[in-house]
Computed example of a mutant assay.
Amino acid sequence: MLHNFAADFEMYGVLDAVASGPIDARLSENSTMVGVGMSMEGIEQNPIVYDLMSEMSFHQRQVDLQVWVETYPTRRYGKSVVGLQDAWRILHQTLYNCTDGKNDKNRDVIVAFPDVEPFVIQTPGLYARTSKNYSTLALENYVVKDASNDAYEQPHIWYDTVAVIHALELFLEYGDEVSDSSTFRYDLVDLTRQALAKYANQIFLKIIQGYKSNNINQVTTLCDRFLNLVNDLDMLLASHEGFLLGPWLESAKGLARDHEQEIQV
């Protein structure tokens, strides 16, 4: 497994491929496979993907993902909570089921450089109506259409965002039962960050619409909302050390051989 997210990661994966790919490769005709390895750009993201991949060296047949995902929150949080099992079932079918064939690179506006001329960004008809059934509910949603001719690099949307928000609601509803788990708090922060980042994309496009139509009030109001969202995300990410820069800096200082090297860090 070789991952490169260009330093901007998000919740993403293809669990079905991970659960079957190594087995298929080993059993293929004239296979010379001798093991399973991972080379990722920073492992501090999408732990479910690497948890599953780490197991594949020990499996002789394809993993039953329905069972594996259902028991995953129990292993990760130390307690069985039905609501969280439902949430992870949804996440498996959405965030961790990217089957559009595109390599993921986080293009969300919240992490992008403001270097695009607003008038080249397409906004009319940007969303297409879809309807999908998930394990706990049936939902309709809007997903980004293919805009390959657009000079603006559209955010990568491969899942039903409404379903993911429902999964977040389940995290909030049932999270008190495992609130003492650091891994749960990490996942809660990460999932909230994912939802807010996609919401920021919607606000941005409405700002562009207002800009094109010379609607100063709309632009001003939505810009304030966007900037408040940036502050909210900063506050959110500061609530768990897994998203802070400080621990990385302190870890680097711990490798310094003398005071001079520590100052350089």
Rank of each mutant, 00 (worst) to 15 (best):
V109H: 04
V69C: 02
P73D: 06
V120L: 07
K105Y: 13
D86F: 05
T99Y: 03
N133H: 08
G101Y: 04
Q60T: 09
N103Y: 03
N106D: 07
P114C: 10
N103W: 02
F113P: 02
V144N: 06
L137N: 06
R129A: 04
F113I: 12
Y77M: 10
Q60R: 10
A112K: 10
R61K: 14
P124N: 06
N106T: 09
A138H: 14
D104M: 11
T130K: 13
T123S: 05
F119Y: 13
D108P: 01
G83T: 14
K102R: 13
D86S: 12
D86A: 09
I110R: 00
P118Y: 15
C98M: 06
T71F: 13
V69Y: 09
A128E: 15
D86K: 14
V111Q: 11
A128W: 03
S80Q: 14
D86T: 10
L95N: 14
P118D: 13
W68S: 02
W68D: 00
V69P: 02
D100Y: 04
V69G: 03
Q62S: 04
V120T: 15
D108S: 11
D146N: 14
V63G: 00
Y77F: 15
E70V: 01
S80F: 05
A138C: 03
L95A: 11
Y96T: 10
E70M: 05
R129G: 04
F119C: 08
S135C: 02
D86R: 13
S80R: 15
A147E: 04
V81D: 12
L95R: 07
L139C: 09
K102N: 04
P73W: 06
Y72F: 15
K79L: 11
Y72V: 13
R61W: 06
V69A: 00
L139N: 08
N141L: 01
Y152T: 01
V109E: 12
T136A: 07
Y127L: 14
V69D: 02
L65W: 01
R76F: 07
Q85G: 10
V111S: 11
V109P: 00
R76H: 11
A128N: 12
N149E: 13
Y152K: 03
K102Q: 13
R89H: 07
P124Y: 09
P124L: 08
E117T: 10
R89W: 01
S80Y: 05
T99P: 01
D104F: 07
Y142K: 11
D150L: 01
S148M: 05
G125V: 05
Q85L: 00
P114L: 09
K102W: 03
T99L: 02
R75T: 08
D64R: 03
T99S: 04
L84D: 07
L91S: 08
N133Q: 13
Q93P: 01
D146A: 11
S135N: 08
